[in-house]
Design a protein around this nucleic acid. Structure first.
Length: 408
DNA sequence: TCTGGGGTCCTAGGACCC
DNA sequence: TCTGGGGTCCTAGGACCC
């Protein structure tokens, strides 16, 4: 049996800029920079290929971009519109595979395993997908094909712009050998510098070294594996599919640093409102609340507090965030950024209406119990009888207050 | 050159429990 | 009374991605 998976990674080319061009075709071919005004605090979110010729690239401070490309067209951007187009992209992808995962607004993974009978071989399916994006949305994209997510991701990067690349299973090492380590997803500025110090510059260098685990811990062997075209969990990495969000946050960088308590308090209240509203929209409640505080010198601290019971109320969140702020802000110190972050989600229904959706919970609990029994034997597990009384026990990892017997 | 905003995942230490 | 090992939770910070 052939168990090789076929994964597509699709990446929209210069997505924000391309959508802006749909809105205003006169922008085509011009150096367009999305992210904000030239003199604003902020960074480039996207740059057209014409702007890139000046050396402008995403994540670059706007003020730097303004020096490199003073005559560029600087736009604030329309996030709502990009999300709308992202939805259209998603709709098209769903015609090609039942397993689609949007990794961000402008990129996605598709599990194409077993679609050959319907859509033909991978390259044919990829070209049809590519054509559909052009024909129906008037947008360019690049598609990478491989046997694991990392492979597909690296391939789509190599395929840019507007191309398709299939890395045949088994040919990863050979195909990637000459690539700089930075091309590997997960290796950024810091890890790249550390690798360079060790004389490791390419994927091939990465293979040749046996001491990565020693230098980088578990992450080291993962890197070596990835360089061979394996995903973190081995050849058969995680399923492709959407997963529930794990955190919600909003933050704000002031146009000018401030120590004005009124401004700081108002900002905390506004950020909290935005976070709480989204929590309620998603029907989530959060247990862990976190404040982020960045001073003028860019020194940044985070301070968290976990509640005994989850909440989505503005008042509860704000009062906790305010105490975190007042307990930690160096009075009078000028602040560059404030942020409010919540995590540790629980859907309110799972706590309140246990009796109504109890069946599913029990199923989960029992299957968890079964796994423990498999591991430790029949007497290892007792389902807690105080199930209702002891609501707090039931976290995601411990759905019904199951306790494994101690192994003394 | 002065460094956004929204996320995910990892590490590491300490508290606490058995 | 001391020791220790394993597991989980919590907090802080940081790398990385788009």
């Amino acid at each position: 049996m052939d168990t090789t998976r076929i994964i597509f990674h699709l990446d929209m080319d210069a997505f924000f800029v391309s959508v802006e061009e749909l809105l205003d075709p006169s922008l085509k071919g011009k150096p367009v920079i999305v992210g904000g005004a030239k003199d604003q605090r902020g960074v480039v979110a996207a740059a057209s290929y014409a702007a890139r010729k000046f050396g402008v690239h995403s994540a670059m401070p706007l003020r730097t971009a303004a020096k490199l490309c003073p005559d560029g067209i600087y736009l604030d951007g329309h996030m709502e519109l990009y999300r709308e187009y992202s939805g259209k992209v998603h709709d098209i992808l769903c015609r090609f595979s039942p397993k689609v995962e949007m990794a961000s607004v402008d990129e996605a993974y598709l599990d194409m395993t077993g679609t050959a009978r319907l859509l033909g071989p991978p390259l044919k399916a990829a070209h049809e997908l590519h054509d559909a994006m052009g024909r129906e949305l008037n947008l360019n994209c690049s598609i990478g094909i491989g046997s694991a997510r990392v492979v597909a991701k690296i391939a789509s990067d190599l395929a840019k712009p507007n191309g398709v690349l299939f890395v045949q299973p088994g040919h990863e090492v050979q195909m990637f050998a000459g690539l700089p380590v930075r091309k590997m997803p997960g290796i950024g500025k810091v890890t790249e510098a550390r690798l360079h110090e060790l004389g490791i510059r390419t994927f091939a260098d990465l293979h040749a070294r046996q001491d990565l685990e020693h230098e980088f811990g578990a992450y080291g062997s993962a890197m070596a594996g990835k360089a061979r075209g394996e995903d973190a969990g081995g050849w058969f990495d995680e399923e492709i599919g959407e997963s529930a969000p794990k955190s919600i946050s909003h933050e704000h960088t002031f146009g000018e640093d401030t120590a004005d308590i009124q401004v700081l308090e108002t900002t905390l209240a506004r950020l909290t409102e935005m976070v709480a509203r989204r929590l309620r929209e998603q029907k989530f409640e959060a247990r862990t609340l976190q404040l982020k505080l960045r001073y003028s010198d860019f020194h940044t601290i985070t301070r968290a507090h976990s509640l005994p019971e989850p909440t989505s109320s503005d008042h509860a969140i704000l009062s906790n965030i305010r105490s975190l702020f007042h307990d930690n802000w160096k009075k009078g110190a000028r602040v560059r950024l404030l942020g409010v972050h919540v995590s540790g989600f629980d859907s309110p229904g799972s706590t309140v209406s246990f009796d109504f959706d109890g069946a599913e919970r029990w199923k989960q609990a029992l299957s968890a119990a079964d796994r423990l029994r498999d591991k430790y034997g029949e007497s290892a597990v007792h389902i807690g009888s105080a199930l209702k009384a002891n609501i707090r026990e039931r976290t995601h990892e411990n759905p019904a207050g199951i306790r494994g017997k101690q192994k003394e």
